[in-house]
Amino acid sequence: MLFQLKPILFSTRFDLFTWLLMKTGIHRWLLNNPGGWLVFDITFYSMPFLHWLTYRKNPRLASIVAALMLVVNWLYIQCFTLYPTNSIEAFTPWLLFPILFMTVDLKSFYFIFHALRYFFLYFFVSAAVWKFVQEGIFNPQQMSAILLYHHKEYIASSPAGWYTSFTYWLINHAHLSYILYAGATLLELTFITGFFTRKFDKALAAGFIFFLLLDHFIMRIPYWEMSPFLLTLLYSKYSLPSIYSSHARKVM
């Protein structure tokens, strides 16, 4: 939440959309502005509830609220990630999911839902491909160097802690830590199966949770903002009712 972050400074990323937003000065207006944080936090966190409430009362109006949620999410996430916190990539589901609720037509909902699933599969597969393109996978020192750079403040401040001993052990056994890196790359690559079949979606979901846990405990990166994408794997087994399409079961 912005109220926890209490931002007074920002860091500009290399993103054209972000620059256009920054031109409005909204991110600067939020600096050292507790009232602004409160308004942004309350609006952002109440949008899903507002959508749910509208959907129950008047489903047609719900798509307008979803469009509003899309705008609110974009404003909030764009500003929030300029301040000292996680990178914006982790918040991709928060930027994209409101689109799903902008339709009241079940068939459109179904297709957008599966498009989000494909995007999620792409997210992982591209992470693996980049490791080959940028050659990180061919560097036996890769994971040791990442761990040392990423945890240097922790290690230096807590030289006697068990986590420091564990991290040093991984850093100093470069081949073992490389196996972790290669294993993560392989896990990312397995998501390619999702483009051809939905049979393994539960296994992919388990792999995703395993990835998040390792990211949390080994890399100390809480990447849980990505977890909404898990829904696309858990609910992909459902087909459209036959009333909507005689081919529904064959879709994909």
Binding site: D15, F17, T92, L95, S126, Q134, G136, K152, A156
Partner: peptide, 26 residues
């Protein structure tokens, strides 16, 4: 250059080498 929501999802894909010295915040 990227344009939200189109990013590069590299996740530590660039080559990292162990260095002789590091600047550490205390």
């Amino acid at each position: 250059l990227v344009i939200s929501p189109f990013y590069h999802y590299g996740m530590f894909s660039a080559v990292s080498k162990l260095k002789d010295s590091y600047e550490i915040i205390e």
